[in-house]
Simulated scan of single mutants.
Amino acid sequence: MSPSQSSSFLHVEDLDAFPEDLKGGIVAIGNFDGVHRGHRAVLDAALGLGRGTHHPVFAMSFEPHPRTVFNPSRPVYRLTPPPLKVEMLKVCGLDGALILPFTKDFAGIEANAFVQNILIDTLGISHAVTGYDFHFGKARQGTPDYLRTAGAEHGFGVTIVQREEDEGAEVISSTRIRDSLAEGDIAQANALLGYRWFFEARVEHGDKRGRDLGYPTANLHMSSDCPLLQGIYAVKIKTENGWFDGVASYGRRPTFDSGAVVFEVFLFDFTGDLYGQSLRVHLVSHLRGEEKFESAEALIAQMDRDSEEARAALGSMQPLSEIDMKLLDLAL
């Protein structure tokens, strides 16, 4: 079963239930948080090896993030939480994803046991593809060179993908993308990802203040560790009723001294009820920082200007990649 032959994507979380359809395949191994351009270089290398063969191509990844396991007081914010990461891997054209639970016990597996027990005995891989900085096994014994040697010894191929750099010759990384979000530099975050960063959240009841201002909003809860800079954003929103352009405010609503951080989305040209729906929000551009206004009238005037600017940004938006087009349901 190759990517061109696959009729369904297989999401596996249990080694004991690893499906026959993926055995003997080409595995891309990594954490893949964000499935950014650097990650996709690894995935594309695996897909290229599988093209024109009978070998399935799948990803092996781990949850939670290893740094979170070893330092739980400082969890790593996930650019793509597990369900979204799996969806991204599917959009990339893989045949499946094996998402293994990462624990301290798992981290303590000897590198040779990881190769023999997992890669060979359970997965029966024909080829492994990893990034230049991937390590595995106890004390990170499993280096890229170790994997190459193991592949030569056991009869499976190994491809190590070198680091992917942006147009400024800087390494593309999940850390840089988190930093870009924290700075409100959505253009850079999206450029490094190769698609518009997005999240999903359920619409919750708020204080209905937006209705009084002429801007009824959908209130979305963001995780407390989200690094996104508070401010105003142009966004595209996917609802049960389809796609809408919109403008969003992320912050504490200082004009009304709410204090609670909330992500509020106003959908252009929408009428209806969104309560209880899970919305997908793609950030397109950062319009301005959060501000306190002297009156509700001054706030409304600024919201009018924000809406005009958001419409202009969204109207001139161009897809960043084929992946971006697929995620936004645009015609190829």
Score class of each variant (00 low, 15 high):
5 Q>L: 02
7 S>R: 04
14 D>I: 00
18 F>K: 02
19 P>Y: 00
21 D>T: 06
22 L>D: 08
23 K>I: 13
31 N>G: 08
31 N>R: 10
35 V>F: 07
36 H>M: 02
36 H>V: 01
37 R>V: 02
39 H>L: 03
49 L>M: 14
49 L>A: 15
61 S>W: 01
62 F>S: 07
66 P>H: 10
67 R>G: 12
79 L>C: 03
80 T>C: 04
87 E>Y: 15
87 E>I: 08
91 V>G: 13
93 G>Y: 10
93 G>F: 07
94 L>H: 13
95 D>F: 11
95 D>N: 15
97 A>S: 15
101 P>Q: 05
108 G>S: 14
112 N>L: 11
113 A>C: 08
114 F>L: 11
118 I>H: 06
121 D>L: 06
122 T>E: 12
126 S>I: 06
129 V>W: 11
129 V>Y: 02
130 T>F: 11
137 G>S: 01
139 A>I: 01
141 Q>S: 14
145 D>N: 08
148 R>N: 14
152 A>M: 05
155 G>S: 11
156 F>Q: 00
159 T>M: 05
161 V>K: 02
171 V>M: 12
174 S>L: 12
175 T>V: 06
177 I>F: 08
181 L>W: 01
182 A>P: 04
183 E>M: 03
185 D>Y: 01
185 D>S: 11
185 D>L: 03
194 G>K: 01
197 W>Y: 09
198 F>S: 14
198 F>Q: 05
198 F>G: 03
207 D>Q: 12
212 D>F: 02
214 G>I: 09
215 Y>W: 14
216 P>H: 04
218 A>I: 05
220 L>I: 07
221 H>K: 04
223 S>N: 09
223 S>D: 12
229 L>I: 00
233 Y>M: 06
235 V>Q: 08
238 K>W: 13
248 A>Y: 03
250 Y>G: 04
257 D>N: 14
258 S>T: 08
258 S>M: 12
269 D>M: 02
270 F>W: 10
274 L>V: 04
276 G>Y: 02
277 Q>T: 06
279 L>H: 05
280 R>W: 11
284 V>D: 12
287 L>N: 00
288 R>C: 07
293 F>D: 12
298 A>M: 13
299 L>C: 03
299 L>Q: 10
303 M>N: 05
303 M>C: 07
304 D>V: 10
305 R>E: 15
307 S>Y: 11
312 A>D: 15
315 G>H: 11
316 S>P: 08
317 M>Y: 15
321 S>H: 09
322 E>I: 15
324 D>K: 14
330 L>F: 13
332 L>D: 15
